[in-house]
Computed example of a mutant assay.
Amino acid sequence: MKKFVFWLAALAAFVLSCNNPNRSEPGEIADLKRELSNLESDEALMKVRVGEKDFYSENMPFKTNVLLLPQSFKVGFLNKEGGNVEMEMIRDSWFEEKPINFSLTNSNLGESGGDQVIVMIGKLTDEMALQGEGYFLVNGKIEVPELSRQVITIVFKGNLVKPGQASTVENYVPVEGWIVVKEPDFSDQSSAEILKQLDEK
């Protein structure tokens, strides 16, 4: 009888974990969410790891710009240190798909499929000389686990190259990123239909 009760409890715990929508939420996203109370509306926090190093200062707020259209999801981020990220993912009816995922392939290496994706990552390294460090994403995946009036979360992983470099494996720099936006202020040019669906969630 005790064994039966034990297995019943274990089964219940398993079912509850399967029904938990945040069960697979990355630890980095959870960590960033814990800091959201320190942000203003329409600000974001992110952790971006380029190679073996964090690319941006920890817990540095970014101002955001979000545009939702039936054929594209575009978002930009800028912080006071000159850090900036620009992302545009293009695919018809992307908003109707759950989960929301995009992929980028490197056609120069014969990779096929994928979506139209533009991701640029940069920062100022010398403000006086206006010198910076920047990269383009050449292949990878972008996931949008949450998209609502309250929060947007974005997770991406892939390979970068510096501007002017060939998109070859020898020039690849690995990247992983986690972004959380608090109460995004969507652009006035965003699709009224998509915003309506967000309001109905």
Rank of each mutant, 00 (worst) to 15 (best):
M1R: 15
K2R: 15
F4G: 02
V5G: 03
L8T: 12
A10P: 03
L11F: 10
L11H: 07
S17C: 14
N19L: 12
N20W: 05
R23G: 05
E25M: 14
P26Y: 07
D31F: 04
L32E: 12
R34P: 00
R34E: 15
E35N: 14
S37P: 02
L39E: 03
D42H: 08
D42F: 08
E43H: 04
E43R: 01
A44R: 02
K47D: 15
V48P: 13
R49E: 12
V50S: 06
G51Q: 09
G51H: 12
E52Q: 11
E58L: 11
N59A: 14
M60S: 15
F62R: 04
F62G: 09
K63Q: 12
K63D: 14
T64K: 04
L69H: 11
Q71V: 05
S72M: 12
F73G: 07
F73T: 07
F73K: 06
K74D: 06
V75M: 06
N79W: 06
N79C: 13
N84A: 09
N84E: 10
V85P: 00
E86I: 04
E86V: 06
M87D: 03
E88G: 01
M89H: 07
R91L: 00
R91F: 05
D92T: 07
W94H: 02
W94D: 08
K98G: 03
K98L: 13
P99Y: 01
N101W: 00
N101R: 08
F102H: 09
S103P: 07
L104W: 03
L104V: 01
L104F: 02
L104C: 04
T105F: 14
L109V: 06
L109F: 15
G110M: 08
G110P: 15
E111V: 12
D115R: 05
D115A: 03
Q116G: 00
Q116L: 10
I118M: 07
I118S: 04
V119Y: 01
M120N: 08
M120K: 02
K123Y: 13
L124Q: 11
E127I: 08
E127R: 15
M128G: 06
L130N: 15
E133M: 11
E133V: 08
G134F: 06
Y135V: 14
F136L: 13
V138R: 03
N139H: 09
G140S: 06
G140V: 03
G140Y: 00
K141A: 05
K141G: 09
K141Y: 01
K141Q: 12
I142A: 04
V144M: 01
P145S: 00
I152P: 04
T153R: 01
V155I: 06
V155G: 05
F156W: 02
N159H: 09
L160D: 04
V161G: 07
V161P: 01
K162L: 08
K162R: 14
P163S: 10
P163D: 03
G164R: 12
G164C: 01
A166M: 13
V169H: 10
V169E: 13
E170I: 10
E170P: 15
Y172D: 00
Y172C: 02
P174Q: 01
E176R: 06
G177F: 01
W178V: 01
W178L: 05
V180P: 07
V180Y: 09
V181G: 05
E183D: 11
S187I: 08
Q189D: 15
Q189G: 07
S190I: 03
S190F: 02
S191L: 03
A192E: 13
A192T: 12
L198R: 04
E200A: 14
